[in-house]
Design a protein around this nucleic acid. Structure first.
Lengths: 352, 352
DNA sequence: TTGAAAGCGCTAACAA
DNA sequence: TTGTTAGCGCTTTCAA
């Protein structure tokens, strides 16, 4: 396959290579006639610019690098499970890249490495991405942010938890979402609602707890002692949390778990105690992982707009896409709307 | 960040750039002294070759492109669900790329496009990957294979269903896996076992059915009429299939669904009929999607080694990795072992 | 065993 | 509005 080069196109169109380059880059001050000639030649030859040549010559690289955490990824690899978060993220980014003729490269970053700085610098030197998308926990790693700043490479941080002045921040309103799902339970008639939190080291966990507390307070409800228990986002901790919450009297009629895996654990715990869901107990989760849809009963939860966040990030990282954004849209801090998904695991509380 | 170039390294080491290049490429006929000097300079400068310059200058690109189906991906995007298959695939590929200092690029391919041939050629011209990984249904698309052959780019096909002489084929033994899970049910004491198949247009569906039939026959069991019903891999079709199978008398004591989503539908159908699983009915799936672990009861299933298949493919696509493979391992057709995962949805049949 | 010089296919000054 | 000429940082001839 002797691929056509810019010289072939120029020859075919009877113009200089610079003119071809101008048309290809949509530069101003080009006559329509020239534009047409070049377009025709490009079409005739099935020409496409070489990514390497463009990057080498100094254009930005039309390449977005997604820096994902190696440890988390390896954990998923070992457990044989996929990584729903990662795949949704990618889909969102890919859809946008496609529009702009950009490419997505996925890179594993070992954020615990002592050579992180050097690893990162050499990675960037090697691939020279036009922009970088950071996923938690890389979104908040100071070394990662520093290196990117020094290299002058634009970056978008998905779900940042700190340094709210650096880079492009794309997130959802965790607190409001938690408040919404709590309100949903209260609207159904629940008064005694328990919560299982995520690890409080994550601000997402703290925000979800704050949303729960705010909603309860906003509706004049008190959270009895022991009605908030700690979890660590695992199925097991959800199960354990459910056992503790359901042992207390008067029993809670609803449990809000800070993620779906824990909510699934609650479902199992309830089943083990012979409690029907939602007849005896309503259960709500957070994230809308695939398993939430197929659990019995299916789980009421918050859909984290992961794909949408990645798409928003990509749109702000790719120059041509960014240019197409409306004025207000182009902000450096974007909050993407979530959705409350009401399924079968929540209902009215049992009669007293 | 003024990144170091090969000239900087050469200057630092007091040698020519060609020598640096030789050391970097592990070419023969290089003195140890020179090698040491260069290595030291590289380390001192934190030097890393530019991917673009290398590719442009003619070296193969140290880039693997995964060509995934755009339609499937967009469907997943719209439905808000992730894509477990894709993420497992990527993890496997990424882990291997990392070893070899290769990079993974994910590309959407619209296999229904009338311009597929041109799209593909220009994609390859643009990124010039050293190797390509094909996922279903691209694994079997003749145009895709043709273009790759013409371009002389090595490719690996995950789960190929035809053309068993082209490219590197990486698969698992679908039929044996189905036979294994059927044997598992028979070993538990089941005699009346129903099956819900996938769309028979896919050879994977046919192989799973063949495995079921072979196992039944191998154990001297007959498959009564109506004991095999068609499904289409969706939850809904699993539910419908269960309703049909469970309406027949004498009732089946076990159902093998050709994938997990359908098995989850069976679980729901059984629950709706007041049947306990596995007390009254055993249910087995296929794939080991994340939801299989969290369903109630958790699902006995076959773990598709998606990540392992991708890793095997990558190992055969990356020259340095391929060189490290043992003799027999290097075959162009690789069968990766699956695993039978016995969970809570299968047990001994109810007493007659 | 080493090095000098010529590209790879583009973009970016600088002219015309 | 268009074209000419240098590079970008490598690998690859071809010499030494």
């Amino acid at each position: 396959m002797a691929t056509a080069t810019i010289y072939d196109v120029a020859a075919h169109a009877g113009v200089s290579i610079k003119s071809v380059s101008r048309v290809l880059n949509a530069e101003p001050n080009v006559s329509q006639a020239l534009r047409d000639k070049v377009d025709k030649a490009v079409a005739a030859l099935g020409y496409r610019r070489s990514l390497s040549a463009r990057t080498l010559a100094g254009a930005s690289s039309s390449l977005i690098a997604a820096l994902v955490d190696a440890q988390l990824t390896i954990e998923h690899w070992r457990s044989g499970r996929g990584n729903d978060y990662l795949s949704r993220l990618e889909l969102g980014a890919l859809m946008e890249c496609r529009q702009a003729d950009f490419h997505l490269m996925v890179e594993l970053v070992d954020h615990g490495s002592p050579d992180l700085r050097r690893d990162l610098m050499s990675l960037l030197a090697s691939i020279r991405p036009a922009g970088v998308m950071l996923t938690p926990p890389n979104s908040d790693h100071p070394v990662v942010l520093d290196v990117l700043d020094e290299a002058g490479i634009p970056y978008a941080r998905i779900g940042p938890e700190s340094d709210f002045h650096r880079g492009i921040r794309v997130s959802m309103d965790e607190q409001q979402a938690a408040a919404d799902i709590t309100d949903h339970l209260i609207d159904l008639g629940h008064r005694r609602i328990g919560m299982i939190t995520g690890p409080l080291g994550y601000s997402a966990s703290r925000l979800r707890l704050a949303g729960f507390e705010a909603a309860m307070k906003g509706r004049g409800l008190t959270i009895a002692p022991g009605m908030v228990v700690d979890g660590d986002f695992t199925f097991q901790s959800g199960l354990a949390g459910a056992e503790r919450l359901l042992a207390a009297e008067p029993r809670v009629t609803a449990i809000f778990a800070a993620n779906d895996d824990m909510a699934l654990g609650v479902l199992q715990g309830a089943a083990a105690m012979g409690l029907s869901v939602p007849g005896d107990l309503s259960v709500a989760g957070f994230d809308d992982t695939p398993s939430a849809l197929f659990s019995t009963p299916s789980l009421t939860t918050i859909r984290q707009p992961v794909a949408e966040m990645a798409a928003a990030a990509t749109r702000r990282l790719v120059p041509s896409l960014r240019a197409a954004l409306a004025q207000g849209e182009a902000a450096e801090a974007v909050v993407v709307p979530y959705a409350l998904i009401v399924r079968a695991s929540t209902g009215t509380p049992p009669a007293e």
